[in-house]
Deep mutational scan, measured.
Amino acid sequence: EVTIKANLIFANGSTQTAEFKGTFEKATSEAYAYADTLKKDNGEYTVDVADKGYTLNAKFAG
């Protein structure tokens, strides 16, 4: 089991951190699915991958 950390950075400057656990593939998929649920209210996002894929920095356009 691994933990994927998602740093969510919103256009207004606020941030949120979420963690997803499971296999690498499952946890990564859940992190992206969570970011997708936030698109409606926060706009499209881009992701910078860090820490060999164990940290995802998602920046929302607003």
Rank of each mutant, 00 (worst) to 15 (best):
residue 22 G to L: 00
residue 56 L to A: 04
residue 54 Y to D: 04
residue 62 G to Y: 06
residue 8 L to I: 14
residue 60 F to W: 05
residue 26 K to H: 11
residue 52 K to V: 06
residue 47 V to F: 06
residue 52 K to S: 14
residue 30 E to Q: 11
residue 34 Y to P: 04
residue 17 T to S: 10
residue 16 Q to V: 14
residue 5 K to G: 04
residue 2 V to Q: 05
residue 21 K to V: 12
residue 49 V to I: 13
residue 61 A to V: 13
residue 31 A to N: 02
residue 35 A to P: 01
residue 29 S to K: 15
residue 24 F to W: 11
residue 33 A to P: 02
residue 4 I to A: 00
residue 43 G to Y: 01
residue 27 A to P: 02
residue 27 A to S: 06
residue 54 Y to S: 05
residue 27 A to K: 00
residue 37 T to F: 12
residue 30 E to F: 06
residue 32 Y to Q: 04
residue 55 T to G: 04
residue 58 A to L: 15
residue 15 T to S: 11
residue 22 G to K: 00
residue 16 Q to S: 12
residue 42 N to Q: 13
residue 55 T to N: 04
residue 54 Y to H: 11
residue 14 S to L: 13
residue 16 Q to A: 12
residue 37 T to Y: 12
residue 23 T to Y: 07
residue 53 G to I: 02
residue 35 A to E: 03
residue 17 T to D: 05
residue 31 A to S: 02
residue 57 N to S: 07
residue 7 N to V: 15
residue 22 G to Y: 00
residue 18 A to Q: 13
residue 47 V to I: 14
residue 12 N to P: 03
residue 47 V to W: 09
residue 47 V to Q: 02
residue 41 D to K: 11
residue 24 F to A: 05
residue 23 T to H: 06
residue 10 F to S: 03
residue 21 K to M: 10
residue 25 E to G: 07
residue 23 T to M: 07
residue 19 E to H: 12
residue 21 K to P: 04
residue 45 Y to A: 03
residue 60 F to S: 03
residue 1 E to I: 15
residue 33 A to N: 09
residue 43 G to A: 02
residue 25 E to F: 07
residue 37 T to A: 14
residue 25 E to P: 06
residue 50 A to M: 13
residue 7 N to P: 00
residue 61 A to S: 14
residue 37 T to D: 10
residue 41 D to C: 15
residue 36 D to S: 05
residue 62 G to C: 08
residue 45 Y to I: 04
residue 17 T to W: 09
residue 22 G to C: 04
residue 23 T to S: 12
residue 52 K to R: 12
residue 39 K to N: 02
residue 48 D to G: 08
residue 34 Y to H: 07
residue 4 I to Q: 00
residue 9 I to V: 11
residue 6 A to R: 00
residue 43 G to F: 01
residue 33 A to T: 08
residue 20 F to K: 01
residue 40 K to L: 12
residue 12 N to C: 11
residue 28 T to A: 06
residue 15 T to G: 07
residue 26 K to Y: 11
residue 19 E to C: 15
residue 39 K to W: 04
residue 19 E to D: 08
residue 54 Y to L: 14
residue 19 E to Y: 15
residue 9 I to R: 08
